[in-house]
Amino acid sequence: TEYKLVVVGAGGVGKSALTIQLIQNHFVDEYDPTIEDSYRKQVVIDGETCLLDILDTAGQEEYSAMRDQYMRTGEGFLCVFAINNTKSFEDIHQYREQIKRVKDSDDVPMVLVGNKCDLAARTVESRQAQDLARSYGIPYIETSAKTRQGVEDAFYTLVREIRQH
């Protein structure tokens, strides 16, 4: 089974770092803004072998026109913010609204991801993020692309959301 996953969120929150940590098991430290990259990885989730087709997208506003296209083809979405960047957390709402509009559905598989949880300088409390996820009816997972904490959990949870859909 193949799953088309799309990673969305503001610029600099760590979308590529999360994806590369999942696929290649290493942490990319330097920031190089993405336009669009796709990665494929075969994994076993709950005993089922599946192929993850992951689209890593641009957070930069100037590429926002490309969003409709990949939102149409994606089956599930990782909505990523950084726990030390309140603005990126506030941006999640717009991504969710755009996904709902493009998919013409209120019920699209999504996982809210709070990345950079290895950093002490948190400005978005776990509780705020949990409340937001609960209001959307989606899971919330904290990750660190640096330490790998929660990385597999985030992507695998999204696959489970798609399966249950």
Rank of each mutant, 00 (worst) to 15 (best):
E36W: 02
V113T: 02
P109A: 07
Q94N: 15
V80S: 03
V8D: 00
K15H: 02
Y156I: 14
L51M: 11
E48Y: 12
E2S: 03
A154K: 01
E2N: 05
F89W: 13
T34V: 00
Q69A: 12
I54Y: 00
D107A: 10
Y140M: 05
Q164V: 04
G76K: 02
I83G: 14
I141F: 12
M66K: 12
I162G: 03
L22M: 09
Y39V: 01
P109N: 06
V111G: 02
A133M: 04
V159I: 14
F81R: 01
G74P: 07
A145S: 14
E75N: 09
Y156L: 13
D37R: 00
Q24S: 15
L52I: 11
V102N: 08
I99M: 05
V151T: 11
F89L: 13
V102H: 10
A120Y: 05
K87S: 10
H165G: 11
P139D: 10
K116T: 08
V8Y: 11
D153R: 06
A10E: 07
Q128A: 13
A133Y: 05
G74S: 11
K4G: 08
I20E: 03
T157V: 11
F77G: 01
Y63N: 15
I99D: 02
E97N: 12
N84Y: 06
I92L: 13
L52M: 11
Q94Y: 15
V44W: 09
G76V: 13
N84P: 08
D106T: 12
I99L: 10
I54D: 00
Q149I: 11
Y70E: 15
R134Q: 10
R101A: 10
Y70H: 12
V28K: 00
R72A: 14
T73A: 14
R163M: 11
I92G: 03
C117W: 05
L55E: 15
Q128H: 10
S88N: 06
H93G: 12
K4S: 11
G150P: 10
Q164W: 05
E75W: 07
G76M: 13
P33K: 04
I20Q: 04
T1M: 07
T147R: 08
R72Q: 12
L18W: 01
S105M: 12
M110P: 00
Q21V: 04
V43P: 06
K100T: 06
L18F: 14
S144V: 12
H26E: 11
V124C: 08
L22V: 09
T143F: 01
E36R: 00
V111W: 00
I54M: 11
T19I: 09
Q164H: 07
A82M: 11
V6H: 08
S88G: 08
V102K: 05
C50T: 10
Q98C: 11
T157K: 14
Q149H: 08
E152I: 12
D29L: 04
L112P: 01
Y63Q: 14
N85D: 15
M71Y: 12
E48N: 12
E30M: 05
Q42H: 09
A145Y: 00
Q21W: 06
R40D: 01
L119R: 13
K116H: 15
R163Q: 13
